[in-house]
Simulated scan of single mutants.
Amino acid sequence: MIIQLTHRTLLKLTGSEVQSFLQGQFSNDINVLEDGVIQLNAYCQHQGKIMALIWVMKRADEYYLSFSQDLSTEIVKKLTMFKMMSDVTITDVTEALMQFGVVDETVDGAFVLNANQSIALTDADHGFELSTASVWEESCIANEVPEVELVTVEKFVPQLLNLDIDEVGVNFSKGCYPGQEVVARLHYLGKSKRRMRAFECDGEIEVGDELLVTNSTSAKASGIVVRRVKLASKSLCLATVEIAHEDDEITLNNSQKTKLTRIHND
């Protein structure tokens, strides 16, 4: 199944200092990135909260950054500001290259995201028979691929989105990047009390909706919806939740008090 990803910005970065520049900006180890794979990175502010989740792809000496389109203006602004006088050129190629999400298929030249998903960057649709956007979202939820949108900017540290597990999105030995000290401190203090989990329900869900757990003593909401998809008979979502109460009665803090049921796929 192939889905055109129409709501993602795509930047191309080139120049003799582009690798070292990205190494100093993002949470993962850019220096070990190989051609043909997608490396998940958090772009954090100084308190370790995520401003954007970036898919980084490498093709020879070119680097491609893909992220939620509603964050484009701010992320391009920050990258441009921090590159200063470095030999780095940032080009928005969103209109020049199409982004296709590939689920359980093989497309030549696609970048591998995980065992079930990859991303193809092409200048034409090559006659692909396209599936709907919900197919991609359902696959992302099944594979626990998080996202940060405008409504959830600076709502999460990497641990809340499971980016520290197996260092899938955070490398703890790579060196400095914005927010690195906070992220590392949380890591070495011990296990995170909140994690991202998959849920289903019969009602509507929106990204940014808050979760309420009946047995929680937290003064704040017990979690936040990270991404969601509406299917014919139900909705699926990824959401952060207190681990101690992940299987308790959980509702959304909305007018319907929609009840969530955890999907045990972790």
Rank of each mutant, 00 (worst) to 15 (best):
R195Y: 14
L53S: 03
T240G: 07
L10G: 01
F172I: 09
E129V: 14
R197I: 15
L113F: 04
V93A: 07
R59K: 07
I205C: 11
E210I: 14
F156L: 09
D247W: 13
L212K: 15
M81R: 02
E17L: 13
S192K: 04
N143F: 05
K230W: 03
V207M: 12
E204D: 15
T217Y: 10
L5Q: 06
K78N: 04
Y64I: 01
S222F: 04
S131P: 05
K234L: 14
R262K: 14
K234D: 13
F111W: 03
G127V: 02
V103I: 15
I30G: 00
Q180L: 12
T106S: 07
I54D: 00
N28C: 07
D202N: 15
V18F: 00
Y43W: 10
A133H: 11
G48R: 14
L11M: 06
F100Q: 03
E149Q: 12
S139I: 08
L211N: 00
F100G: 02
L252D: 02
E167F: 09
I243M: 01
Q4G: 00
L211C: 09
K191W: 11
S72F: 01
G175R: 05
Y43G: 03
K58L: 04
E206M: 10
E17A: 11
V182C: 04
F100T: 02
E204N: 13
D266F: 08
E147C: 05
I205W: 06
T240K: 04
G190W: 15
S66R: 01
R194G: 05
L211F: 06
I119M: 04
R185H: 09
S218K: 14
K58W: 03
E242S: 07
E181S: 07
L150N: 03
V241N: 02
D61T: 08
E138W: 07
Y188R: 10
D70T: 01
D61H: 09
L163Q: 09
Y188D: 06
E242P: 02
K234F: 14
G101C: 03
S66P: 01
S216A: 15
K220E: 13
V226W: 00
N31H: 07
Q4W: 08
A184Q: 11
I50M: 14
G36L: 10
D108A: 06
H264I: 14
S233Q: 13
I75D: 01
D209L: 02
T258M: 00
A124G: 07
R227I: 15
G15L: 07
V88R: 05
L150F: 09
I90W: 00
L40F: 12
L150I: 14
Q4P: 00
L260Y: 06
L252S: 03
S255E: 15
L186E: 05
G109R: 05
K257I: 13
V37L: 04
E181Y: 07
M1K: 06
Q25S: 13
S139N: 14
I165R: 13
K259R: 15
G48L: 03
E246H: 08
T9M: 02
N253I: 10
E95P: 01
V103C: 04
N114T: 04
M85T: 14
V183N: 01
S20G: 06
G175F: 08
G101R: 09
S66Y: 00
K191Y: 10
S192C: 13
A239Q: 02
